[in-house]
Design a binder for these strands. Structure first.
Lengths: 139, 139
DNA sequence: TTACTTGCAAATGCTTTGCGAGCCG
DNA sequence: CGGCTCGCAAAGCATTTGCAAGTAA
């Protein structure tokens, strides 16, 4: 798992008390989730009452620009973040519980690149989200 | 090409003057684009000064619920709409010009279903967007 | 007739920003 | 020290909604 704080330092980001805390919070929350800004704020604010939500917004934006965290905008409206990971992955969202599962599929990645090229484009980014409901096995 | 107004009537939607105009506007604009609410509003308002943007919002939401138009939320923030088409398709967005290209790829569709099933889910919806830049052929 | 629609303006929810004070390097 | 960062409150932006008046069926 990536250590967001460490990565920030490596990238030469000026680290303040708030940024250190927010970085740690995102690292922690990324192990099992994709927190939105408010969730990050609540968590960070618990560790340091002096952190405002404006700072969280500014910080996640900064971290994203520096490529240490990734932003996702699923169909629920708000932006969600996670520490970058070694390997790219996409998401499947449980539309009933909101649970988010990660998966990788090289085949899809390749086809995407091919499709783009066919249309005369170089693929620079993409978004693939699956929305599903749990299959109930009743037998 | 789908006639939104006609489809609305078929689905039993109560058609007001405003809904008729908005339906027609979306049909027209869908032939070569994916208009956002403001674009639909401006166009509809030109035909009938009495159409407010609140009505456009209410109407596109209604049309979407009735399955006569489709909503997309690309990375530019606002919601875009298009008349539903016979065949499902995905989009490639030119990140420099904003141009939107449509494409279909059954292979990807199949893999998605397989991936979902592997994770224990039934796929009910998905989102696939490619973002690219035009390849310049200089030879 | 009567429930459904509308325009308007106010409210919402998420996000950004101007400002003066505070802090990192 | 000097520029970057912060907290706060106000502003922004897309979208939604309460309400009284208007309209389709």
């Amino acid at each position: 798992m990536i250590d967001v704080k460490k990565l920030c330092k490596e990238k030469g980001l000026r680290m303040t008390e708030q940024r250190n805390i927010i970085a740690d919070v995102i690292t922690e929350m990324s192990t099992d989730g994709h927190p939105d800004v408010n969730e990050i704020f609540l968590f960070a604010n618990k560790k340091d009452k002096n952190i405002s939500i404006a700072t969280v917004y500014r910080t996640v934006k900064l971290f994203e620009e520096y490529g240490v965290i990734e932003k996702h905008e699923f169909k629920d409206g708000r932006s969600r973040y996670e520490a970058i990971e070694e390997h790219h992955h996409d998401h499947l969202i449980d539309i009933e519980s909101g649970e988010i599962h990660e998966f990788t599929n090289d085949e899809i990645e390749n086809i995407q690149r091919t499709v783009a090229k066919t249309l005369g484009y170089e693929l620079v980014d993409h978004r693939l989200e699956l929305y599903g409901i749990k299959i109930k096995k009743n037998n």
